[in-house]
Design a protein around this nucleic acid. Structure first.
Lengths: 138, 138
DNA sequence: TTAGATATCTCCAGAGACTATAGGTTTGGA
DNA sequence: TCCAAACCTATAGTCTCTGGAGATATCTAA
């Protein structure tokens, strides 16, 4: 039986975060010691590693909750799990596209400024004041 | 003189968001009508457009506050404004890099799954359970 | 002028995913 | 047996809004 601190060390998930996941229903409420402290088993370790991994990949809590629910019906078809992952992939790709546009715009703005003239002439400030100086819509 | 609703329509910033910006000190407290409603002038319109543009570029409130403070000293050199924009550009680039790694990992996971077999064999679920199936560290 | 519709006011709560603090209790090792 | 470390609960804070409740102001049409 592992304490919450042991579980934390083994998974790299902070102690308050573990309690938070329990509260959010991602982890089942743990057994308790006589003194009311949480005690975990290997199963919980695996579950928490699953959650951690999914969070690292950027899945949000509700998607993870759904994946966990699915994984508890091992004989059903996995179309939904696939869909969740594919949707997330799409949202990651969308985010990348948006950030690339921002990157271009910012790079353009920064490249016009050598940091060495007066604020009133600064391209950074002027760009922000005047959307017309932009290359693209955003 | 513009009401808060007029200002909102002209800038595309929602009414509660305008009040929020005032509260955060990005917009000066507006003049009030006899009945205590906010009344704005062209100056405020420009300021709000500046804020909106900076937010669209992903700058956070404190960076915007700093840029506004700088823009009020038009004769000082603009090194700080340049630095704020350049720092932000770097953080955008870092974010893009991270998301690209995620994208690769997710694409790999999704590509192994046709959504058409049992959960117990699903590569999506298995990948999340077993970090060892990953290509890279994350 | 007055009624009614729309806009505005303040204050408060919620979103998401934690993180931190305070004040108290349990555990484990010397 | 004692003490430090780890644990417990409950609550508030992070960031940038967004939405609601209930009250007041403003505008338009009759």
């Amino acid at each position: 039986m592992l304490s919450i601190g042991d579980l934390s060390k083994r998974t790299g998930v902070k102690v308050p975060t573990i309690r938070y996941y329990e509260q959010m229903g991602l982890l089942a409420a743990a057994e308790r010691s006589e003194g009311n402290q949480r005690r975990y088993e290997r199963q919980d370790l695996e579950r928490l590693a699953f959650i951690r991994h999914a969070r690292d990949l950027g899945l949000d809590i509700s998607a993870i909750r759904e994946l966990i629910a699915l994984s508890q019906h091992p004989h059903q078809p996995c179309g939904n799990a696939d869909r969740i992952a594919a949707d997330h992939l799409k949202s990651v790709r969308d985010k990348i596209e948006k950030l690339k546009k921002l990157e271009q715009e910012l790079a353009r703005i920064v490249s016009h400024c050598d940091g060495d003239h007066a604020i009133e002439d600064c391209y950074v400030i002027r760009s922000l004041s005047d959307h017309g100086l932009c290359d693209s819509e955003h």
